[in-house]
Amino acid sequence: MTQTDPPFTATMFQRRRVPGWAVNGALLGLVVVLWFIGKAFDKNLDPYYLDLLLHIGIAIILAVSLNLINGITGQFSLGHAGFMAVGAYVGGVILKHAAPQGAAVPVMFLGLMILGGLAAAAAGVLVGVPTLRLRGDYLAIATLGFGEIITVVLNQIESIGSYEVGGSAGLHNIPITTNFFWTFLAALICVVVVARLVYSQKGRPFFAVREDEIAAAAMGVDTTFYKVAAFVVGAFFAGVAGVLSATLSGNLDPAAFGFVRSIEIVMMVVLGGSGSITGSILAAAVLTLLPEWLRALESWRLVIYALLLILMMLLRPEGLLGNRELWWTRRRLLAVER
């Protein structure tokens, strides 16, 4: 405080702002573009590549939603596949029971995505509230337990009333209703919601909870609310991803939602950079494509895959983007010349 003339003054900082309606309009435009791309892809693209694209879209939703819980709010969860399973089974069981026809398909599918998301969000509350007292390793183990309970329960249920669930044999021949447009619309909404949420005054406390809970509370942050909110929003989108994945292959197997699936999603978050939304998107794409690229190596595939991950963590332990975003330079307030 002793310098005579500070090098910067408050009036030197300005930000050029884009009005909200312009950004919202552009996003709506992007939805229309997605619809046309979807139309073209569904007709002309090789089914193998289309399938790969849809898997990437689902992986993006899973990674970004887990990033909100693990990377941004700092609540290490290993139960994301459990939330996904809740959504997948809600969607799959209802579709199998009553397959819609014609014009009812998109309406019902949209409704099911929301319903699957809400069911998973309810599970998010169930997991979020009791685990509030747990931190670090203990939270990880508790959420892992939740994920395992979900798969065990799904293994046991053959049917609920006249609704077939399938038990350990799995649920098969679910009508395939997903497509490029639905998957990437859901991914777009997930990314926009999470990004807008956390990069705002309303959502900045998510980061504060990760950094220092005691200091956050001393700054008036309701840490309980933000922790549960992270679980609820994260679980909601995991549920949506579940509905999409159930209707992508048409088959559901409880074993597919176990511990390994959760770890795969955690890997995407860590590889992309914990706390970086664009990093999660990037890593979701890379980790979905990598096993495909390595197919030529045949039985060496898994070894090379694992080695690449180890190398990556050795060379860049903070992940691809660290805690930065691709658009970071635009978000900065820069001092303008006097």
Binding site: F207, R210, E211, D212, I214, A215, G275, N323
Partner: peptide
């Protein structure tokens, strides 16, 4: 706080 508690990564 006695031992500074900032949000260090932010």
């Amino acid at each position: 706080f006695q031992n500074v508690r900032l949000f260090g990564g932010l």
